[in-house]
Design a binder for these strands. Sequence first.
RNA 1: GCCCCUAUAGCUCAGGGGAUAGAGCGCCGCUCUCCGGAGGCGGAAGCGUAGGUUCGAAUCCUACUAGGGGCGCCA
Length: 552
Amino acid sequence: MTPADLSAAIVRILAGLQAAGTLGAGSLPTDVVVERPKNREHGDWATNTALQLAKAFGTNPRALAELMAAELRGVAGVAAVDIAGPGFLNITLDAAAAGELAKTILEAGEAYGTGSDLAGQRINLEFVSANPTGPIHMGGTRWAALGDSLARVLIAQGAEVTREYYFNDHGAQIDRFARSLLARARGLEAPEDGYGGAYIGEIADRVLAGTADDILALPDAEAQEKFREYGVELMFGEIRQSLHDFGVDFDVYFHENSLYESGAVERSIERLRELGHIFEQDGAVWLRSSDFGDDRDRVVIKSDGDAAYIAGDIAYYLDKRSRGFDRCIYMLGADHHGYVPRMMALCAAFGDQPGTNMEILIGQLVNLMRDGQPVRMSKRAGTVVTMEDLVDAVGVDAARYALARSSANSQLDIDLEQLSKRTNDNPVFYVQYAHARTKQVANNAASLGVERTEFMPELLNHASESELLAKLSELPRTVAQAAEFREPHRVARYLEEVAGAYHRWYDNCRVTPLSGGPVESVHRTRLWLNEATGVVLRNGLALLGVSAPERM
RNA sequence: GCCCCUAUAGCUCAGGGGAUAGAGCGCCGCUCUCCGGAGGCGGAAGCGUAGGUUCGAAUCCUACUAGGGGCGCCA
């Protein structure tokens, strides 16, 4: 008996009451929320359904609660139903019905926690998309952790997800990058508007070492082109490697330049022109984005004939849609939030639904802190702190967990001291240790002959077992909400609660008998609960891309 | 000036209309004759301000204050 089972039972009861004429006409909910009450004196589960629906059914909350309670008491596994306050229903299960969950979880295994809310949806999830002009900095790192985890959560809800990286290999920033490489190779200062980190020297050296001809002997324009061609390739290789080492691999690395080479940019602008949303003024080509909620119109082709940045986005969006994606989710940094209205406008200009076909998530900035001061310098990049810096300092698990455990729309300060020097005082270790402990307990149980040969769920009746079971039952709902709200951090917070409940259970309920004592049914049954906790922690950590070690 | 995000414990953050607002860290106590004490138990400590909606607001709305970010024919 899980909260989901109770919820379904309540929906059936309401329908039954209405069919019997006991309730007036009123639209029935398809799902009601059943929650663990904060105060254990209020039972195992509680719902405020009667308070919320009474008005719609033309009755008062207390009366509706009475009707529902009478029916609920007849549901198998329900031990008691009380009505409290203005109309809360407090439900107590019998221990066996609650304990059954341990077996359910073990039978489901890796599938426990998955759902089908998003079944059939084809989602394109674009994140990171950092320019290949330098290493990935903290903003991109946060998106890598959060985006990859979101992808996993969406997949767990049945969506078909393509992780995509938009590779901006076209335009002025790349030119500056190439000029910077060339200048460094010639022993000159970086250009005024160029890039100056130590990595520029490294890349420049590798370009020189990797090309047979003496490209420094070429005229500037040709030499710069060589540095652009090979330098971008090398930089991008490094970015891919950093991401891979971070546990993030994209299904598609999309090259902006390909949109220009294939003519997709011209074709997409032509399409908008046919739809009547393009006009020309002052020698430039404009998108009438103000017709679609943007605060002004936007230049698509500049008066000098070059494409503006948005031209690539127009073509890219159309390309994603033509590849069959119902939803295109973009994860952007806070410094790009001003770009959102024009993106939504171009979506609408194509006749699509902003917010549905196109969804944009904005992530606030993240600061690395050390000794209470922001860390701004990176050895390699010169100015920004990179993904590699963070991983070097704290490791992949701690880095990903720290970045994924907070909501994207709050700014985040990450304390390197807490994550590195005192690693055992870190939330990720609290969770990972709980998982390792389930393994240790299982090993001890095996060596003492405790096996899962019998399962008597009514023996899981200690208060700490009730708490643990209740917490384990919430994984499916947590994952579903994380997917619905695009908030994978919910999974991390949930796991911390599971870990706490497990540690408390461990201190109260032994899986192995005291030395010399007989192995009893209760030990064998508790082993199921121990294993079920391991499954939940493992499945949850997997959604965050964090390892579940068997020992620490 | 306009737009976006944020304001909850000493710190970093959860809490998407419900009952006594939580976690980790830090601080003060306690806890091991038996599954790893990297644990557990107890304590001190908090919703920026002012209104509004509601039976009920940390949560929704408005104003204000404070912090961060953004407002190019840059990318």
